[in-house]
Amino acid sequence: MLLLRTVLHLAALLALPPLLLGVVNRTKSIFAGRVGPPLLQPYLDLAKLLRKGAVYSRTTTWVFRAGPIVGLAAVASAGLLLSMGGAPAALSFAGDFVLFAYLLGLARFATALAALDTGSAFEGMGAAREVTFASLAEPALFLCLLVLARATGTLSLSGMLGPALPGAWGSAGPALLLAAIAVFVIALAENSRIPVDDPNTHLELTMIHEVMVLDHGGPDLAFILYGASLKLFLFGAILSRLVLGRGDGALASEALFFLGVLCFAVGVGVVESVMARLRIVRVPQLLVGASVLSVFALVLLLR
């Protein structure tokens, strides 16, 4: 049974992420009063990109071609550590969330280096912003996970997002609520969403993540887009389990989990529709604010 669930989760991890992008875009189009692209459009986009060839600039080296591959592999391996629907993850051990965060860091490292390999000032700017904001988001993410660890009394992601969670909501509700808000903010920042970054912007000077991947095309771009949606799915999974972790029985908690992930995508779409993006100088304030919230949540639990 458990094995079946794990296999199901891994399949969902690989298959569902582009759907989330579709849901986000559909939500935005509804808010804008448009019909919008079909829900499955991201899959079609990926299929199209995979069939295309890629063009490389004369300045690039193997680092540029390795960037998308390492980035996707790292995010996918991080997915192995994530517990979904309350079942233990494929790979879980005490302190695995450190590995989870550092694998995401590896993906960022590879993407930023690939950006610098083009020798373009725009991509350098994007890489600088990405690593700057990531280095501020990282402590905030760890603080949130510490809150979870303290509230559930376990040190692995599977434990934190596992069966101990409903009880933790009873005993440490306010702290978990603060942590959930902080995780949502971090998810928006890490996935380059409004209000931190606008995935649909057309002005290179204001971009963060998008400008880093300007020179990638064809299958490389497909890897990058798929990796980005995978990362969105990972954060959606954490948040869904964190907020809705109350299902009784395997089936109910699975259903609740996938519903929660979809709700997360809708939430991201709503935020993108109703908010403007922040000025770049305000982004560190937002991320430090998330850290401060989660420090407060942690202190509530530590006293």
Binding site: T59, V63, F109, V131, S135, P139, F142, L146, V295
Partner: peptide, 27 residues
């Protein structure tokens, strides 16, 4: 609370070495 401090250090170190490798060897 040492955990977030270490995380900050890790993030900053990664940023610094993206800079070093990128500026010295790439472009």
């Amino acid at each position: 609370l040492g955990v977030p401090a270490l995380a900050l250090v890790g993030g900053l170190a990664a940023a610094c070495f993206v800079k070093v490798v990128g500026v010295v060897f790439l472009g």
